[in-house]
Amino acid sequence: MNIFRLAGDMTHLASVLVLLLKIHTIKSCAGISLKTQELFAIVFASRYLDIFTDFISLYNTLMKLIFLGSSFSIVWYIRRHKLVRRSYDKDQDTFRHYFLLLPCFILALLINEKFTFKEVMWTFSLYLEAVAILPQLVLLQRTKNIDNLTGQYVFLLGAYRGLYILNWIYRYFTEPHYVHWIPWISGLVQTLLYADFFYYYFESWKNNKKLQLPA
């Protein structure tokens, strides 16, 4: 494992912790898109089908369990928890996220590295993860007062994707035959979706102003 991969995983972990902190301690999910969280839960469920069949490392298995557990508990909190549910911006979070599932699945059936069930599901999870942030970004644009934790959550998620690209570049030059177009292109698309957010995040940070995205 290289430093970029580790840093990427740690920012991913940090993003989840920031979100859980907000939800669990403040009992609020204001500004958080349930649609995006549901897509992430589907992403991890379809990607980690190998969790009990292919052992890679203890680190790997633990991280998979954390991402699965946290993504489903976040969805549970927003849908079922009495207090958290009340803070959910239902009327603002209107992105039709189910419409993303079918195109991603068809694309995974057509473009994959190997036509097997596990491999197609793994590829599907990559395509879906690439676009899963869209409902969250739309919600952010509609939110007048983006609180710090929400801003940091999205920033950490974007940083995680950026670091994974550096990890792939590093692996490409250090490992023989390391060529994976599917995760690279979907990962690049995913990172580019954050570009706009990053711009305004740094602007607000530089000018010491509250984060606000232009509608």
Partner: peptide, 10 residues
């Protein structure tokens, strides 16, 4: 050589 897998990533 077998192609390097990237399923070791999260």
């Amino acid at each position: 050589d077998e192609k390097q897998s990237n399923h070791d990533e999260l």
